[in-house]
C-alpha cells in the first residue's frame, strides 16, 4: 500500500507510526515535495492483519528474535526458557462490525463543510472561489477553524470530562485534533452534553474502530 500526493504526483513517505492504542495504529505520511501530510488510522482488524503477516509498519527497529511472532501472539502460551512473551495489545473498547473508519470520517467531512476536507482542495463539484485562501500546509496539531453547526447540541455547549480528556491524551498528537472534532460531532449529533470515556467508546464503535 502506498499513498500518492495528488498535487505533486509523488509517493508520500512514512514519517511516524504510533500505537497500537486500543487496537489502532496511527501512521503519518508526508509528501517530500510539498510537505503535505496525511494520517492513516487502522481499526483492530486491520492492525491484527498486519500483525498476522509478521511485518512491522515503519520497518523493523530490532533484530528478529527466534519465534518472536508465536511467542508474542500466543494468548495462552507458556514461558519458554530464555525468552519471555512480548507485550500484548491493550484491551480494546467496544468494537463495531460496521465498515471502515475512513468512511465514517469521510461522512463526517461531508456533513460538516471544512471539517476534514483538505485546505485548498475543494470537494469534487464544489467551488471554493468565495473562500479565503487557507494555509495549504497547516502544522500538525494546529487547531482548525471551528466546524459548522450540527443537529443536536451546539459544540460550544459540549464539555469533556477529565477522564475523557485523559483518554484523549493517549491518542497520538498528530491526529488528536481530528479525533477530538470527530467525537464532538458524534456527541452533538447524539445529544450528549458531556463527553465521557463511555461516549468516546460509543463513538469509536460507530466509526468502526
Amino acid at each position: 500500500m502506498r499513498f500518492l500526493c495528488v498535487t505533486c504526483n509523488e509517493a508520500m513517505k512514512l514519517e511516524r507510526v504510533e500505537g497500537p492504542e486500543d487496537g489502532s495504529l496511527s501512521v503519518l505520511f508526508a509528501c517530500a515535495a510539498c510537505g503535505n501530510r496525511v494520517a492513516m488510522l487502522t481499526n483492530p482488524w486491520e492492525t491484527q492483519l498486519v500483525r498476522a503477516l509478521d511485518v512491522r509498519i515503519g520497518g523493523r527497529s530490532s533484530p528478529v528474535e527466534p519465534m518472536e511472532f508465536v511467542r508474542s501472539m500466543l494468548a495462552s502460551g507458556r514461558e519458554a526458557g530464555g525468552g519471555g512473551a512480548s507485550p500484548s495489545l491493550p484491551a480494546t473498547g467496544p468494537a463495531s462490525p460496521s465498515g471502515c473508519p475512513f468512511s465514517a470520517m469521510a461522512n463526517l467531512a461531508a456533513e460538516t463543510p471544512g471539517a476534514i476536507r483538505q485546505p485548498g482542495h475543494p470537494a469534487i463539484g464544489e467551488s471554493d472561489a468565495s473562500e479565503p485562501a487557507p494555509d495549504p500546509h497547516p502544522a500538525i496539531g494546529e487547531p482548525r477553524a471551528p466546524s459548522g453547526p450540527v443537529a443536536g447540541v451546539p459544540n460550544s455547549q459540549l464539555a469533556w470530562s477529565p477522564d475523557a480528556e485523559r483518554r484523549l491524551e493517549r491518542v497520538p498528537e498528530f491526529i488528536r485534533p481530528m479525533i477530538r472534532q470527530s467525537i464532538e460531532h458524534f456527541a452533538a449529533e447524539h445529544g450528549y452534553r458531556l463527553i465521557t470515556p463511555e461516549v468516546m467508546a460509543e463513538a469509536r464503535g460507530a466509526f468502526g474502530m
Binding site: 497500537p20 486500543d22 487496537g23 483492530p44 482488524w45 492492525t47 491484527q48 492483519l49 500483525r51 498476522a52 503477516l53 511472532f69 508474542s72 501472539m73 500466543l74 494468548a75 495462552s76 500484548s88 495489545l89 491493550p90 484491551a91 480494546t92 468494537a95 462490525p97
Partner: peptide
C-alpha cells in the same frame, strides 16, 4: 486450545489463516 492475542475476537477469520 490455541488462541491468538487480539484486541477483539470478533472477525478473527480475517487474519487467523495468516497468523
Amino acid at each position: 486450545p490455541l488462541r491468538w492475542k487480539a484486541p477483539t475476537s470478533e472477525g478473527d477469520f480475517v487474519w487467523r489463516a495468516s497468523a
